[in-house]
């Protein structure tokens, strides 16, 4: 029960913050702690504001982010660089998915 209430409050809070941020034209990735994902073609991905690696193989990368997780599928994936809040993936990228 308390889990549901917390989720509800979180949703309300996020909505409010989102509206506040768009009103002041503040970049939302900073304000809402949202991940910022940059693709360079289908060969490189740059993810800022991640919360850790959930799963990593040469075909799949799952990364925890503020609002769930990101799943990237591909071939020969290599984590070129990884720091506490950013990571840089290289390889043949096929798809990306957001899981709430």
């Amino acid at each position: 029960m308390s889990e549901n209430i917390r989720n509800y409050i979180n949703q309300k809070k996020n909505k409010f913050m989102h509206e506040f941020a768009s009103m002041l034209e503040i970049p939302e990735d900073i304000f809402l702690n949202m991940p910022k994902i940059t693709f360079i073609g289908s060969i490189q991905v740059y993810i800022e504001n991640h919360r850790g690696v959930i799963e990593y193989t040469s075909e799949k990368l799952r990364v925890a982010v503020t609002s769930g997780e990101i799943e990237i599928l591909g071939e020969d994936l290599m984590l070129k660089n990884i720091l506490p809040d950013e990571l840089f993936l290289e390889g043949k990228i096929k798809s990306m998915e957001f899981n709430q």
């Binding site: 850790g52 990593y56 193989t57 040469s58 290599m78 984590l79 660089n81 990884i82 506490p84």
Partner: peptide, 21 residues
């Protein structure tokens, strides 16, 4: 191995060219 990566990164130890054949 994911745990290894997360632990190392959270302590601030840089890793690069991570590959899992």
């Amino acid at each position: 191995l994911e745990k290894f990566i997360n632990l190392a990164v959270s302590r601030g130890y840089p890793l690069w060219n991570i590959y899992r054949p």
